[in-house]
Computed example of a mutant assay.
Amino acid sequence: MKKKVLFLCIHNSARSQMAEAYLKKIGGDKFEVESAGLEAGNLNPFAVAVMKEEGIDISSNQTNDVFDFFKQGRLYRYVITVCDKESSDRCPIFPGMSEKINWSFSDPSSFTGTEEEKLQKTRKVRDQIKEAVQDFVKQLKR
């Protein structure tokens, strides 16, 4: 049976989108994966660009509001927040959820500097997310 996973962040514009894409790629058909935000925003162009460097196209992804999922009665085995702890605490508790995990990553929408500097900082977050997803998949295989 597939393990249902929801990745959450503030706007569902970068971190949760990258995590969803990586778990789909790395975890394959063992997972059913979605992502959402506390408030649906717009896709972050830097996140789209750095994922494209990895051969993953998220440019047509929609952003989702977590409260819509909650109202629809969706169930998840794992809810993984990829924002700071304070924002994570504002997320709803899904019935039947067996584990809520917080991975705190910097928010690409807050990055300042030149376009190249923002890309570089977003690449760093992308790589941290990829590593966290790889570790998550390995732990569940044990």
Rank of each mutant, 00 (worst) to 15 (best):
W103N: 01
D89A: 15
C9T: 06
T63L: 11
S88E: 00
K24Q: 14
E54K: 14
F136W: 09
G73L: 07
P92H: 06
A36T: 08
D65M: 00
L43I: 10
T112W: 03
Q72I: 02
A14S: 09
K85W: 11
V33W: 06
S16Y: 05
E99Y: 03
D107M: 02
D107F: 04
T81K: 03
S59G: 14
K85N: 13
W103L: 04
G96F: 10
S60D: 12
L23P: 10
S110A: 15
T63A: 12
Q139W: 04
N61R: 12
R90E: 13
E86K: 14
E53S: 07
A36D: 05
N42G: 13
S13A: 15
P108H: 01
H11V: 00
Q120V: 07
A21K: 09
A47Q: 02
G96Q: 11
C91S: 15
E131P: 00
N64R: 13
C91K: 06
A132H: 05
K25E: 14
L8E: 04
L140M: 15
K138Y: 07
Y78H: 12
A47D: 01
V50P: 03
V50S: 03
K3S: 10
A19E: 03
V5Q: 09
P108R: 02
Y76W: 13
S98K: 15
D84H: 11
T63Q: 06
M97K: 09
S88K: 00
F7A: 03
